[in-house]
């Protein structure tokens, strides 16, 4: 009995250690999204300039949909990457759209005045569009294919490598969903 206990006790610890290692190695900021491959939630919102913009209008382009806020420090860090994105890809191929998350128009505008702005921004009253997208916090970025389906999602600040990999693959591949006539 004593001989058996000697190896059974450590053996019983194995599943617990395995679970602990799994839990500690996991990125707590990563949440799998069920939206990959699905049609992107539709939205029709007002831009910071007061014009109307909808996702449907952007059909045919790859859309980089970036949820951000002026109070969000990592958003400040990724802003340069978005400037680079808008500069690199022609606007009739790739459209960057910022969705302002839980912020006032004034603060959002001031942020853009400071850091530069060459793309479109819409405001999202009551963060309804963010909730439609299953957003946990900012920044989060969705890459929408030409047919209006979500190709990829990135949580946290963007890097140029992430943008390039996702945009290039969406530009190269046919849309996941057929364009609505």
């Amino acid at each position: 009995m004593r001989g058996r206990l000697r190896w059974m006790l450590p053996l019983a610890a194995v599943p617990f250690l395995g679970l602990l290692m799994f839990g500690l190695a996991r990125n707590p900021d990563f949440f799998p999204t069920p939206l990959i491959g699905e049609p992107a939630p539709s939205w029709h919102l007002e831009t910071l300039e007061g014009d109307s913009l909808s996702l449907a209008e952007l059909r045919g382009k790859v859309v980089v949909l970036n949820f951000w806020a002026s109070w969000c420090v990592p958003c400040r860090a990724e802003h340069g990457v978005l400037l680079e994105t808008a500069r690199t890809y022609p606007v009739d191929e790739v459209q960057v759209v910022g969705i302002v998350y839980d912020d006032s128009r004034r603060n959002a505008q001031r942020f853009l005045d400071q850091l530069g702005n060459t793309w479109l921004h819409v405001v999202d009253p009551g963060i309804r569009t963010a909730i439609d997208h299953g957003v946990h916090g900012v920044p989060e970025t969705f890459f929408v294919d030409r047919g209006g389906a979500i190709g990829a999602k990135h949580i946290g600040p963007l890097t140029w490598d992430v943008v390039q990999a996702n945009v290039d693959s969406l530009l190269a591949s046919p849309p996941v969903t057929a364009p609505v006539p």
Binding site: A69, V73, N107, H136, G137, V138, G156
Partner: peptide
Amino acid sequence: AAQEPLDNRMPAE
């Protein structure tokens, strides 16, 4: 880590 939850925001003016 990097992401900022809604609750940590600075009070808006």
